[in-house]
């Protein structure tokens, strides 16, 4: 028996056709890029499925940016994404991504666009906005840039939250505190944009021109679920190459992607949204109930 029920499959189909109709009417072109490719963009916290011939794509980002650089204008794609080792109550090693890019738009504009779509299609209340540092401080009482591992440990002990025994650097502590203390409080009642991620979590976003400790990366939350991740895209080749060089080197770097950046990525913002997470946030149920055949968890 499939896991997702027929009513859930219908809700999924209806959501996808609504999204396609809306994005098309807003002038975005649906595109199709490879899911299997000989090279990729390495990211330290994403483990790619690797075949002798190449990698299964963890997101369509590299190829969609090549289309942007080639002047395709506003584009979107709905496609499978593959991430090794991600399996749990909110994760499946294969899931569905909606990814889209708006040229000539910054992260603020992209959030406004997404807010309008979510109000119109999903009948959600207007999205709230909170900077990352503020949400982090509110939930933990800690200053993101200055807390010490000892303070983090003390906080977890006070909260009765068991902590890992092994070595934890500041970044690991940040992710730990975020996962267990910050994220469950985000987007309850109304969706929330968590904005201006710290620069050490900028990923492929540009840094904030007014405060170099921050970046123009945001995430979208609803009902404590992370639904999407967006960037005002980094277009600086030198900076991009430097960030990629800092990633561990198991992955063959996509030179076509770097070449596209060199040729010139237009000013653009882009976002990736997890379709099954969105369905779960909108309609409830377990995460796996939105997959016809979720990865087996014995």
């Amino acid at each position: 028996m499939p896991t997702a029920s027929l009513p859930n499959q219908r809700l999924r189909a209806s959501l996808l056709s609504q999204l396609r109709a809306e994005l098309q009417s807003q002038g975005l072109l649906e595109v199709n890029t490879p899911q299997l490719w000989p090279s990729a963009i390495p990211e330290s916290e994403i483990d790619l499925f690797t075949l002798p011939e190449g990698h299964l794509m963890a997101s369509p980002e590299a190829h969609m940016k090549r289309l942007l650089a080639a002047g395709f204008g506003p584009i979107y794609q709905i496609c499978p994404a593959f991430r090794r080792g991600e399996l749990g109550q909110r994760h499946n090693p294969q899931f569905t991504i909606l990814e889209f890019y708006l040229p000539g738009v910054d992260d603020q504009g992209l959030m406004r666009f997404l807010d309008q779509v979510s109000q119109k299609l999903f009948d959600l209340p207007p999205c709230q906005v909170q900077p990352y540092l503020s949400a982090f401080a509110q939930a933990t009482g800690l200053d993101y840039h200055h807390f010490t591992p000892a303070q983090a440990l003390q906080l977890c002990q006070a909260q009765g939250l068991p902590t890992p025994a092994g070595e934890m650097d500041r970044r690991a502590w940040t992710d730990f505190l975020f996962s267990f203390l910050v994220q469950p409080r985000l987007g309850l009642g109304a969706p929330l944009f968590l904005t201006r991620f710290p620069a050490d979590q900028a990923s492929l976003a540009r840094l904030d021109s007014t405060d170099a400790r921050l970046s123009r990366r945001f995430e979208w939350f609803y009902q404590g679920l992370e639904l999407g991740n967006g960037f005002w895209e980094l277009a600086d080749v030198a900076e991009q190459t430097r960030r990629l060089a800092a990633q561990p080197g198991k992955v063959r770097l996509d030179q076509g992607f770097l070449a596209a950046l060199e040729a010139g990525l237009p000013e653009a913002s882009g976002v990736a949204i997890g379709i099954e997470r969105l369905l779960m946030a909108l309609h409830g149920g377990d995460f796996k109930d939105w997959f016809s055949f979720p990865w087996p968890q014995e």
Binding site: E45, I46, L87, G88, R171
Partner: peptide, 15 residues
Amino acid sequence: DFQFVKPGKGNAFTR
């Protein structure tokens, strides 16, 4: 029972 958590671009933990 166990719970897998992972921020989109961060370290994963299993509680």
